[in-house]
Design a protein around this nucleic acid. Structure first.
Lengths: 167, 167
DNA sequence: GACCTTTTCTTGAAAGTTGAACTAGATAGA
DNA sequence: TCTATCTAGTTCAACTTTCAAGAAAAGGTC
C-alpha cells in the first residue's frame, strides 16, 4: 500500500495504518468507558467531570470561563452550556469577575466538591484498570512522551504548530 | 501524591497523572482537529467518514448494520441515525438482507465512493501531519503496541477484560 | 470624547448522541 | 405447534455539541 514518491498522495504505510486503527479503537473505547462510568457513578459525562476537577485544582476553587475553556480544550460556547447544566445540579455557580465586568468566574460549590471527593476513587480506579495496570513502566513513559509531542503539534497557538513543513 | 498501601484509594503517581493529562489533551485535540478537517473538506464528522471507509473495505461495499456498528465501535442506535444522514447525502443506501428479514445492509453508493476518493488524500495528510510526521519510527511502534493493549482491555467481549484482578 | 476593533460570554437553532422502549423476525424447547 | 426468549434494527425524548449571531465591556487611536 506504500506509494513511492510518484507525486501522488502519500499514503500511510501498513504499520502506520495498523497503528492508526489501534489508536482510534483504543481512544474510542476509552472515552465510552469513562463516559459510562462517570454517568453511572457521578451523573455526568467525562468532560463535565473534568471541568470540576480543573476547578478543584484552581486557587480558591474558581476560574475565569475563558481560562477554564482553554484548559479543558473546549469552546467557550460549549463551556457556557456545560456550566449552565452543572449550575442546575448545584455543583458550580457563576460569579461576576471584580476586575473585568465582562468576565465570569466558575466556582466549585461545596456540593460540587463533595461530589468530586465521592466519585474520585472510582474514577481513578477505572483509569488505572483501563490503562496503567496494563502497561509497563517503560510504556507509560513512552506514552507520555508521545502524547506530549502530539498535543504540542495540535496546540492552537503553537509557534510552528501549523507549519511543520518549515522545520 | 502517592498513597502507600494504607487501604485508602490508590491514586495515580505524579508521572501517571502527567501522562493521563497529556493523553486527554492529545486525544481531545486530535479529535477536534480531524472533525473540523473532515467537516470542512467532506461535509461530515470523523465518525461518519470512518463508516464510509469501513464500507469501502468490505466485500461488495456493503455490511450488515450490526457488524458495521461493532467494527466502528458505536451503538446500533447511533448507527441508525448516522446511516439515515448519510443516506440523505446519497453516500450510502440501505438494502434488505436476503437471508435474514430483520437485517439491513448498509451499501456504499458510487457517489459515496467518489467522495471518499476525493477526500482521502487530504485526510491522510492531516493524520500524517498531526501524528506520524512528529514521531520517530520507534515511537510509532511503541504507540501501536500500547494502543493494542489498551483496546484489548476495553473490548466488550474481552475474556477477562472486566476481571483484571483475577489474572 | 468618539470611533473602531477586540475580547468575553451568552443565546438559539440545527445537528448529533444516548438509553429506553418498541416492532418484527429468528430460535429453541416443550 | 405453541410459547418464550433472543436478536436486528428503528424510534422517541432528553441531553449535548456546534456554529453563527449578538450584547456588553475593554482597549487603542485619533
Amino acid at each position: 500500500m506504500t506509494t513511492a514518491s510518484t507525486g501522488g498522495p502519500r499514503w500511510l504505510t501498513d504499520e502506520e495504518q495498523s497503528v492508526w486503527s489501534a489508536y482510534l479503537h483504543a481512544t474510542t473505547l476509552m472515552e465510552d468507558h469513562l463516559d459510562r462510568q462517570l454517568q453511572r457513578d457521578a451523573g455526568m459525562p467525562h468532560i463535565y467531570y473534568g471541568l470540576l476537577v480543573q476547578l478543584s485544582r484552581a486557587p480558591r476553587h474558581r476560574k475565569r470561563m475563558t481560562e477554564l475553556a482553554k484548559d479543558a480544550k473546549i469552546t467557550r460556547s460549549r463551556l457556557s452550556h456545560a456550566v449552565a447544566r452543572l449550575e442546575k445540579n448545584g455543583w458550580v455557580r457563576r460569579e461576576d469577575c471584580p476586575s473585568d465586568k465582562r468576565g465570569q468566574n466558575a466556582v466549585l460549590t461545596d456540593e460540587g466538591h463533595a461530589m468530586l471527593v465521592r466519585s474520585a476513587p472510582g474514577h481513578v480506579a477505572a483509569v488505572r484498570q483501563a490503562m496503567f495496570a496494563r502497561l509497563t513502566p517503560e510504556q507509560v513513559r513512552n506514552l507520555g512522551e508521545i502524547m506530549r509531542v502530539v498535543a504540542a503539534g495540535l496546540q492552537p497557538e503553537g509557534t510552528d504548530a501549523d507549519l511543520p513543513w518549515l522545520r
